[in-house]
Write a protein that binds this DNA or RNA. Sequence first.
DNA 1: ATGTCCTCACAATGAGGA
Length: 278
Amino acid sequence: MRIATWNVNSIRARVDRTVDWMVREDIDVLAMQEIKCKPEQFPAQPFEDAGYDLAIHGLSQWNGVAFASRLPITDVVTAFPGMPGFLKGAEGPDLPAEARALGVTINEQRLWSLYVPNGRALGDPHYAYKLEWLAALQRHAQSELAANPHLALALMGDWNVAPFDEDMGDPSFMPGESTHISAPERAAFTAFEAAGLHDVVRPLVPEGFTFWDYKRLRFPRNEGMRIDFILGSEAFADRVTDASIHRNERKGDAPSDHVPVVVDVDIDGEDDDRPMIF
DNA sequence: ATGTCCTCACAATGAGGA
């Protein structure tokens, strides 16, 4: 089966493009970020007409995450335990949760659609929030795998971190001055490795960005960033047979600023549409 | 070039977020 993640930057602005791509690329499961709407505003019909079941989590015009799946979606949760909240100008515990995480079970795999806080600027309260949010997610993933080491777990989404120097091609991001490349953000990302979650795309697709800012000709100049990732547990990673970054989705009319990241997963017993040969 | 795109607001421009 084919599993993908895509920050769509408003599903209402891009529903036709999104569903057309899913059908054309034979996508079974898509984790979406930045749907930018509430569930009742989500354009469900085009997905349902194409044979997809939906799980949607949106609280306002900001953020918002969703899943579309050809297989049944169960065990839906709209936050992970310990997920911090955020409120501009406020500090401390018990701040309102944002719509940045959606956990589902599909075909005995635990999948998350994640929209990591942007951070805005070093020293901004949103930057501390980003680090706390990543640390809480890492703790949750670690405890899930401690309880069930064989769990097929995948954390998919827009991480807003460029883990390696070659992942940052935007010259306006400066070492020591900018988010996405700071040492604490990279450490927060690397901590998932210690929890047993590995980037399942990079070994198969060593190069390539997943995001290019709309401004300043970033796409024509290829001054993008690699910030969208699929991190898989050992049980999930063992099933991955191929991966791809769909750069062409940044082209044409009204693209998202992100492109889809895809993995092919070989489930036991799945015939993968290939004829059986005896 | 404060450069683009998307959303909402007691809207026809301004603000917030990325």
